[in-house]
Design a binder for these strands. Sequence first.
DNA 1: GCGATTTGCCAAAACGTTTTAGTAAGCTAT
DNA 2: ATAGCTTACTAAAACGTTTTGGCAAATCGC
Lengths: 372, 372
Amino acid sequence: MGRGTKKPSVGSGSIGRSVTIKDLAGELGLSITTISRALNGYPDVGEKTRKRVREGAEKFGYRPNRNAQRLVTKRTHNIAWVQQDNDRKFVDPHFVEVMAGVLRGARADNYDIVLASDTPEHEMRVYDRFVNDNSVDGFIVDLPRENDRRVSYLLEAGRPFVVHGRDGRTGEYGWVDIDNYGNFYNLTRLLLANGHRRIAFINGDESFTYALYRHRAVVEALSDGGYAQDSVKIYNSLHPMGDAGFKLTTQALGDPNVTAIIYSSALMAVEGHAAILRGAGNRDIAIATMDDELHYIDLSPFAGQFTTVRSSLRDAGAALIAELIRQCNEPGPGRGIEIASIFDVADGTDSAVLKKPIPAKRRQALKRLLPA
Amino acid sequence: MGRGTKKPSVGSGSIGRSVTIKDLAGELGLSITTISRALNGYPDVGEKTRKRVREGAEKFGYRPNRNAQRLVTKRTHNIAWVQQDNDRKFVDPHFVEVMAGVLRGARADNYDIVLASDTPEHEMRVYDRFVNDNSVDGFIVDLPRENDRRVSYLLEAGRPFVVHGRDGRTGEYGWVDIDNYGNFYNLTRLLLANGHRRIAFINGDESFTYALYRHRAVVEALSDGGYAQDSVKIYNSLHPMGDAGFKLTTQALGDPNVTAIIYSSALMAVEGHAAILRGAGNRDIAIATMDDELHYIDLSPFAGQFTTVRSSLRDAGAALIAELIRQCNEPGPGRGIEIASIFDVADGTDSAVLKKPIPAKRRQALKRLLPA
DNA sequence: GCGATTTGCCAAAACGTTTTAGTAAGCTAT
DNA sequence: ATAGCTTACTAAAACGTTTTGGCAAATCGC
């Protein structure tokens, strides 16, 4: 018995059933317990036996069935990442960059990413499914809004998750973010200090916190410096990519007094630059932009021309998955991680103002969630 | 017995173990067989009972453990998609668009996408892992090269897979592709017929078949029409995004006789357009480009100005997953699916030439793999 | 040389489903 | 009334691992 109790696998074998731990145990004359414990590094296996098992596994092509492992260990080594299937903006190209970092980090710890999408109305049922069907260990949450329902849900469900960005709530949860407020506060101060009195700010969709905080930062930099609120005019690109930079820049240039434009994304800055060349080639417009180090938008030709705040989205992705895996391994609340940003000011720009700290009361509003 | 043989779940319950089929069976006074068969639509369950089970499942929040299901059914409803972690070009932004289509299609059939990456040297070990550990039902293969090793491997392994693009081999495998050859053959003919005698072609990385076939098409359109081979100069952007369009366009404009530029991607066309405005604003350069309907590059402002060949990458993604799921359900060889493309010629362009078919011998070379 | 400890291995239970192979009860036709 | 059929349910096996608890042999201390 044992051998022969089962129909022999059909045909060429390439598609036949795979070799199981029982097969390997049979071949090596060992128990399945020993195979399992040998392969999983338990100390109660002799070194000779362990070697024999390793070689046998290699020779017979034994690969543990992932589903059986998951069933018993209750760990899947899978992380869910749910995208909104929104007709206007399905997935942001910035997402690709974050994902590159996430995938690289995941690989190091043998995790995979499970991607799914649903419409905004039904988005939560995907979380519900993943929370309840034991198919993932944790979640990545993207593009948070204030008091994001996904965060509330996952906090309630008690599952590991990390947010890329902050959702503004008080209380502990895992996030990875840059200092959106500080960066745009400083960018605004910098332009003002350099004499710009009419600035356009081409921001993203302010229903997302990253854009909301940037907006607040710009407004508060004005009031803190005693400048008129109409020193900055804010344009929003709800669809933050595409020709938005081009169109909104053209619109902004309609005001002949504008001398500087701040962009929320390098993608828009590059398009905006084209619009400036086309529509206002004779005007000298200063460009300041967030630079997420999108690998497919090379800003190097504009070095010295644009003022940039640089922070790698790929690094953010790596930090996201690292924190998430940490949460999967050690129970307890999630941690917040702030990623550094680096200023590169355009040639001829006086950057002395950057050395002055942002007023404490201002910082506090958004810093309160930072780890101690 | 039944009730009480198990420790009650601890505390608040939110993080407690989830309700199993056995729990539900106990609550409803039915066997687990009946629960399973009721929920899975088997006919040998009374309608009253089925209703009671459905409502009970809802009430107690029963969700089948996915890993247990997968273990016994040997179907995961997961599809693997492996990305190359290549420092230069991790993931192409076009990828996002395809993924949007794939995710939407996957959702309809309750599939999820499992994403992983590895370096080019180790790429195959990821396929090896997925082929052998029972964690996915099939594969999506991206950006094929000629005689792609991934295709060879999966064909050998006998696993369902679909290639986005063709790898040039004879023999049956699943793919979804546009007619790269035909589209660029026609684009070239069109420009030649409209009097352009010096054309720049800004192509992608020709180690990928999509770009290779486009190159061949352009060359053969010249020879078929009896034009000198130097009527077209080909530039390659190994890194097909970013400022490549800008730089290569600037380079192409160095030849004062150039009157038309063909782009392999709208992303480059838009950048190239900026370069033309900047560097050759006074010259009249015709632009023709592939338009993949990238949602974040809106070409509508250029309607009538650019000649485009349009085909939705999102639709391609939907076709990819549909064919893959078909393969998972019915054994047998994969099918090839060609996605339609639509020409929109720039205002004032004579498009009569497009009505003439491509010479049969030309078509044949690339058509041989099409389904009958 | 003998009891205690350590080493190296294993049988069986458990994980949570689906599927197989029934069976008992209720009908139907004669 | 009974053989046969249908309906509605179920016990038990199976999927392929990990983990628990144990046990025999080898080693150690003295």
